[in-house]
Amino acid sequence: MSDRPWIVDDALWAVIEPLLPKWPKRSPGPRPVDDRRCLQGCRRRLKSGPVATRES
């Protein structure tokens, strides 16, 4: 097992990528984050569990 289980390998990305909507060539605002990186960030957050909060 990998020490970074949130990484989206090529086989998984080949399944997921066709399901995502395409970005328009020109859109207002800042450039969007790469879809693969965004998915990896979501998976990392889900794998890491809840974040401890400070009570004031």
Rank of each mutant, 00 (worst) to 15 (best):
G29K: 09
D10C: 00
R36T: 00
D35W: 03
R45T: 06
A14M: 05
S48Y: 06
R26S: 04
W13T: 08
P21I: 09
L12E: 14
P5W: 09
P28Q: 04
E17F: 06
D3V: 00
L19E: 15
L20W: 09
I7M: 08
C42V: 14
R37M: 08
V51L: 12
W23K: 14
S2F: 01
S56Q: 14
R43Q: 01
A52D: 08
E17P: 02
K47Y: 15
W13K: 14
A14R: 13
M1F: 10
K22H: 10
R4M: 08
R37N: 02
R44D: 05
G49T: 08
R43F: 14
P18R: 11
P21R: 14
P32I: 05
T53Q: 15
P21F: 09
S27Y: 13
V8R: 01
D34C: 08
R37W: 01
E17G: 02
L12R: 15
A52E: 11
E55N: 12
R44A: 13
P30C: 06
K47T: 02
W6E: 07
R45H: 08
D10K: 09
P32W: 10
L12T: 11
E55T: 10
T53P: 00
K25L: 12
W23T: 05
P24H: 09
R36Q: 10
P50G: 10
K47A: 14
R54E: 14
R43N: 01
D9F: 03
V51P: 02
S56A: 14
P28D: 02
D35T: 00
R37D: 06
K47D: 07
M1P: 00
K25T: 04
L12V: 07
V8L: 13
I7V: 15
Q40P: 02
I16P: 01
A11Q: 10
E55P: 00
R4V: 05
D34T: 00
R44L: 12
M1D: 11
P5I: 04
S2A: 13
D35H: 09
S27H: 15
P5F: 00
L12Q: 12
V8G: 00
R54H: 10
P5M: 08
K22I: 04
V8I: 14
P18K: 09
I16K: 09
M1K: 10
I16E: 02
P28H: 01
Q40E: 15
T53W: 12
R31N: 08
P18E: 12
P32S: 13
Q40H: 03
P50I: 06
I16T: 13
A14H: 06
D10Y: 01
P32C: 07
C42H: 12
R36E: 02
R54G: 11
S48R: 13
W6T: 05
V15F: 06
R26F: 03
C38T: 07
S2H: 02
V33N: 03
E17H: 10
G49K: 12
L20K: 05
K22A: 15
R54M: 09
R4I: 02
K25W: 02
L12M: 12
R45G: 08
W13G: 10
M1G: 14
W13Q: 13
P24A: 14
D3S: 09
P5R: 06
S56M: 12
P30V: 04
W13R: 07
L39W: 04
A14L: 06
R31F: 05
K25F: 04
L20T: 06
S2I: 02
T53F: 11
D10G: 04
P32A: 13
G49S: 08
A14C: 03
V33M: 15
D34S: 08
